[in-house]
Structure formats: C-alpha cells, structure tokens
Design a protein around this nucleic acid. Sequence first.
DNA 1: GCGTCCAGGTCTACC
DNA 2: GGTAGACCTGGACGC
Length: 327
Amino acid sequence: MIRPVKLSFQKTIVIKPIAPFDFELSVRKWGGWGWLTPFEEFRNGILWTGMRLKSKPVGLKLKSRGNIKKPKVEIRVFSQSRLSKNQTENLVKSLRSVLTADEDISEFYTLCEKHPVLQEVKKNLYGMHTGATQNLFDVAILAVTLQMAPVKRSLAMLYCLFERYGQKIRFDDREIILPPVPKTLDGVKEKELKEKCKLGYRAKFIKALSKEYLAGEFPEWEKLLEMKPESAKKELMKLTGIGDYSADILNPHPGFPIDIWSVKIFCDLLSIKKTKSDRDMIPIVKRWAEKNWGKHKRIAFDYILHDLESLKKKFGIAVGNLATDYT
DNA sequence: GCGTCCAGGTCTACC
DNA sequence: GGTAGACCTGGACGC
C-alpha cells in the first residue's frame, strides 16, 4: 500500500435523521465489518471513517449532537482540497443515504408488535437505522469474500484486500483504510490475489468484477432502485461471481440474504419446521420472510443478526459458537 | 502428524 | 430448467 494521503479539515455538516435514531447503534456494525470500512474507529461516541466522493478520498468524523427522539449528527469533513458546492451537495446526499436518515422505521416497529422475536429486537435495538454504503463494487467485493467461508476466513480475505490494495488516509490523528478501487485490483495478477490474500477461486471473481466495473457493466444504484426488485436482482446476477445470495446483499431493494449458516438460526427462531437439508431450506425461509415481513424483511434480518446474543438468551436458540464467531 | 470432510456460493457441463 | 461436480483454504475431527 502506498503512503497515507493526508487530509485537512474543510467543513462541518449537520444531518437530522428521522426519529427514532440511535447514533451509536446505527454506525457501529457487528462482526468487524464496519459501517463504511472495516478499518474505521469508534471511540467515546465518535466515529472516524472515510468514503470516496467519486474518486476523491474524504475523511469523516461523526458525533451525535442530539438524542434518539431529536437526532442530530455532526460530521466534520476532511479532504485534500476544498469541496465545491456541487461536491458538498453530493456528500450530504451520500451521507443522508448511508445513514438512512430519511427512512421512517416506525412502520417496521408496528410490524414488530406482531412477532415475539421482533418485539425483542425492537426493545434491544430501538432507534437503529441499518444503512450502509451504496458503492456496489465495494459491496460486491464484500459479498464474494463471504461466499463459502467461515467468518474468520472471510474477514482475513477482506482485511488482506484492504491492507494490500486499499487506500490509506490520515486525518485528525487517525489512519483509515478505504476500500480498493477496481483499477487497482484490475492491475493485480489473479495468482497474487490467490496466494497473498488466500482468495482461492474467488480471485477470479474479483478480477472479473473489476474488469466489468471498468467496462461500465455495473448497474447504477439509482437505476436499480427504479426497477422492480426481481428485475434488479436479475441485473445484478449478470455480474461474475454474483449469484442469488450475493445479489440479495447488493440489491437496493429489500432482500433476505440468508445462507447455510443463518438459515439454521432463522428456522430455530421462527419455528420453521426443517423438512429438507439446510441448503434446500433457504428458499423456504425466504418465502416465509416475504410472506410475513414483506418490504420489512431486510431490516428484520439486520436487526436479528445484530441481536443474536440476547436472542440466544431469551429464546434459547442453538446459535452457540456460530453467534460468537462474529465477535 | 496425517488424511478426510466440509463450510455463511457460484459456475459450468451435461442431461 | 434442473442438477451434479469442481472450486480454494483452513479448522475440526478421527485415527
């Protein structure tokens, strides 16, 4: 990795999300995945992280200046050069989106009253918004590293990709690593990715995704939003290495990205009778979620995965070591 | 210590 | 269109 890019303070942005909004729950993600990058830092109620404005690296220092009922987030912005009016407007738009500041979760909370598991997660995670990056390439890389591997190995692959090929930024006495860009990964040999980051067969997917991005074959987030959920998913599945599971992670429409690991938990939690193998139960549990939770299935999914430890105690589900694998 | 199995999917060849 | 088998790696397990 090249030496860190030094960023200096430019301006402060204030965002007022729709209440209820709990700042810490919304920006602190489980399992070492991070909110915008796995290498961000959260300490004493402050989050240091970063993102790109097109190709311009931006450092962000976020702090709550409100409360759950009257939320207000102060964001100090750092960059190499002054932000133009247009860049500032785009940054505010991106920040509102990744914070899901405009999402009213009260409708989901009404649904929560109908199911004991959701009642519990609502109580424990009240005010959590589940936003994350809109950069489809970054999410595609994450999805590929999640495939066919335990969490420990997924994190090892992801961390290696960031540390070797990501971009380090330095601001406010902190160093943050931003995700690798397609151009960088396109310039790395598949053999190197396999050997250095232990990506195995996934190295081919990463290379192909980089080439597809550079060739303009990645769909745009806004266009996917305009499509019907299933059409958007089909579009995403045209990308190399993106199948049913990964497309559910990338899709801006609410999906239900369960896999072999999580299907066991959902069957236990939701008392869904296991009539087939774990893999064959995946479409059955997906249909259950669609039927019972509809457009709220993704936020329900996120709330449940964030609250596994307390759900384990409350409902005695057999998540055992699987849940602690995330910590 | 060594061999075998399998995991938090996807692709491809084959029928 | 449906399905079996291959694909990387590393931890768990049995011997």
